[in-house]
Amino acid sequence: MANKATQLERVATIGEITRRFPSKIGRTGLMKCLYFLEVIRGVPLGYSFRLYTYGPFDSGVLDDLRYAEALDVVTSTPVYFSGGYGYEIESSDRNEDLIGRSEEFVKKYRADVDWVIDMFASKSAASLEILSTLIYVERESREANVPVSVEKIVASVRDIKPHHSEENIRSEADWLRSKDLLAA
């Protein structure tokens, strides 16, 4: 059984994702990438994601992000657009030094970080919220040994996120199935 990551290893993982991400990553992108790393790839980050209307969330991720900012591993810049705001997170001066402090951990899970970036870097924040919620609902059913169909998962997600259309949620579910990430 793998040991849970230390806080420095989690900060280094945030630094590594940010450094390797092909563009500036947002907070939602970071939150969901860490979720996928933990639950799909089994990286023992030690977060406890719970379901909110905006998808699986752990405030510990934001705490670690703030600590990463305090250590000058990453910088966050707010960006504003019509009908909302977000953040652009970039690798900063001390990133490589901090990653060096957790080199073994980062090296061990580098392929998983590459995988999560390849798979999800092109997705929007809204799409990542739906994708992660679909995975959350399916995993929950699997852990409870309750058989569940894709129709039921889509209906559950629609119930939680009524501002998204059923077609949209279904389309994201189909994408996950095409990548073998949704077994139902």
Binding site: T28, T53, Y54, G83, H163, H164
Partner: peptide, 9 residues
């Protein structure tokens, strides 16, 4: 608070 894409929070 309404958010255009992600829905209210």
């Amino acid at each position: 608070v309404p958010f255009d894409q992600e829905g209210p929070r």
